[in-house]
Design a protein around this nucleic acid. Structure first.
Lengths: 145, 145
DNA sequence: TAAATTCCCACTAAACTTGTAGGAATGTTA
DNA sequence: TAACATTCCTACAAGTTTAGTGGGAATTTA
């Protein structure tokens, strides 16, 4: 039961865009270099974020990406659901599931509890939280404000 | 991020063995019929439980399996870890991981929280709990004691 | 026009999932 | 002892997912 690189990389991309957001466009090449991820693979992952409107793209030379809204508006859960699909531990719990035995399934209750616990964690961390952790770790050397 | 059939079936097998534990051996064929799982596939899953000593086998005609210890001694977490491997949502968190960036990785803290939440759920439900839920649902028609 | 960049689509190797299949080993029973 | 029932062991395989690679079109800037 693992989160795939797609989801993990997507979270790192959003964090990278939030950290390096200075009004200018950020190129895939730079993110890939900083995060040590294949450029081509990152392209595909950012494309997902782009289609969902989580990032804004600018094409052409000097183009790149920006985070679309305030980092506090993006939870890790939103990003994971977008890239990984549902975070339900079993398909029975997904919307539109056709499980007939659900009513008399003891194990399903465990999976439901698990689902709740997972959502509770990932929906209560925003990209802004991750940014703050990083800033703290780096020390408060940023006197620019 | 799904639990595979292997893990889910293993939990159902343990529950089935606990529910039908009347001193006699329980055949794979019967479990497979009750749980609607392929016999041959179940064989392999039970083999894992058997090697770990979670169930005891009796070979030959009239043979089968029994749950080895009290159902209260088996948590869902134990069964899942045995069949699925570590329930860590990322490899970095697994024992013997060689992740160098762990010290400066903000996202890892999220995965760690997630890991804790997952373990907290699955380690706090035993097979006995599942049995009890089933008995309650069926109504207290069992006056044999 | 040349260069830089996003965008789009096709392909692929490797691993994992979810089984099937066949038969050997072991024990019971007629 | 022979037939039968059952676990045990191992190999195979189709389908899906993962984690990319690769080529080039479209768009924008210098």
């Amino acid at each position: 039961m693992k989160i795939s690189t797609k989801g993990r990389y997507a979270v790192r991309v959003m964090l990278d865009l939030a950290l390096n957001n200075n009004g200018e466009c950020i190129k895939v090449k730079d993110i890939a270099a900083r995060q040590d991820i294949s450029e081509k693979y990152l392209e595909q992952i950012i494309a997902i974020l782009n289609k969902a409107g989580y990032v804004k793209s600018v094409r052409g030379a000097q183009g790149g990406y920006r985070i679309a809204r305030d980092p506090a508006e993006y939870t890790v859960g939103m990003i994971l659901r977008l890239t990984e699909g549902s975070m339900a531990p079993v398909a029975c719990l997904e919307d539109g599931s056709e499980c007939e035995q659900c009513d008399t399934c003891e194990t399903l209750e465990v999976w439901r509890d698990l689902y709740r616990a997972i959502n509770s964690v990932i929906d209560n961390v925003t990209v802004a939280d991750l940014v703050e952790k990083r800033r703290r770790r780096e020390g408060s050397f940023d006197y620019s404000i």
